[in-house]
Structures are given as structure tokens and as C-alpha cells.
Write a protein that binds this DNA or RNA. Structure first.
Length: 160
DNA sequence: GCCAACGTTGGC
DNA sequence: GCCAACGTTGGC
């Protein structure tokens, strides 16, 4: 039997809406509000126990701030059915849901944030397929290869 | 199927 | 707050 290989993903959140501190407080959180098909399809590929790099976007120091893990398989995002929610989608019905989410569980904060600026300095090693720093990419859920994850996490122990 | 208009993302 | 880049919508 081949061992289960945990995949790594990067998930963006605006800290003013939901930060790594918020995740630490609640422990586990349904990752609602993703309304992009590519991001949704990545969540559908996730397995319980996969690693998540928690990225803060649209803030003074964008970057990776913590580690989390996937705590559920993908299931319909309930906010799509709620007319009072900003994520309401009138074209979605419980019989025919359009958007999924996964639960994400807090693991730990990084010793220090790995900033976007620092990540960019390793663009060559990370490669063309790393969507986070691909020009114009706004994908909020994206896969991270084992080599990319190793590199990113190794930066944590580099003192600055 | 084309494409202009619009809304959103997210760095700066 | 600005704006480049992108995805979606809808008229035709």
C-alpha cells in the first residue's frame, strides 16, 4: 500500500475579514466565500490532512503568516443559498449547488511572516507554475508543489 | 461565439 | 485611494 502523500495548498484571506489570529481563536473554520471556479476546483481536490499555507492578502505586509490543515472534504458553501449573505448566489440551489468549501483547522503561526516581497526574491527557484507570483494571477486557492512548500517553509528559519 | 462593459482582486 | 489585470455577464 502506498503511503498517503499530503498535498500543500496556499489559501488567501484578507486579514481585516479573517486572519490567522481569527483562525487560532476559533480553531476550525469553513472557508466560505470562494466564488472562482478554479479555486473551487482546487478545494474539491483537497484531502483531509492536507497542509495549508495561510496567506494574508490586501494588507500592509502581504505574505504567509501561518500553517493550517484541511479538516473536511469539500461540501456546498451554505452562504450561496443565503440572500442576506454577501456571498449569495441566486443561481445556486441546495439541489444544484455551485460553490464548495472545506473546513480549515489552525496548526500554528509561523515564527515570522514570509512576505510576498521575500517570496518574490525566490521566484526563480519557485518556478513559473507558482500562481501566487505569476503576473496578474488573483487565484485565492492554489496548489503548492512539494519542492515549493519545502522552499517556502525553509525561509521561516532564516533569520532576518 | 464575439466582445464591450462591469465588478473584483490585490499590490502599491 | 489608485489602477492593472482578470473573470463574468449579457447584448447582439
Amino acid at each position: 500500500m502506498s503511503p498517503v502523500r499530503r498535498k500543500t495548498w496556499l489559501m488567501k484571506s484578507e486579514p481585516s475579514a479573517f486572519s490567522i489570529d481569527d483562525l487560532a481563536r476559533v480553531g476550525s473554520e469553513p472557508w466560505n466565500g470562494v466564488r472562482n471556479y478554479q479555486a473551487r476546483n482546487f478545494m474539491r481536490q483537497m484531502q483531509i490532512g492536507d497542509s495549508v499555507l495561510f496567506y494574508h492578502s490586501n494588507c500592509p505586509r502581504p505574505g504567509i503568516y501561518g500553517l493550517a490543515e484541511v479538516a473536511s472534504l469539500a461540501y456546498p458553501d451554505p452562504t450561496q443559498f443565503d440572500p442576506a449573505s454577501p456571498y449569495y448566489d441566486p443561481k445556486a440551489t441546495p439541489a444544484q449547488p455551485r460553490w464548495d468549501l472545506v473546513d480549515v483547522r489552525y496548526l500554528r503561526h509561523l515564527r515570522r511572516p514570509i512576505t510576498l516581497d521575500e517570496i518574490r526574491r525566490h521566484a526563480d527557484a519557485l518556478g513559473e507554475d507558482f500562481a501566487l507570483i505569476r503576473k496578474g494571477s488573483r487565484l485565492s486557492v492554489l496548489p503548492v508543489s512539494p519542492a515549493q512548500a519545502r522552499l517556502l517553509l525553509s525561509l521561516e528559519s532564516v533569520d532576518v
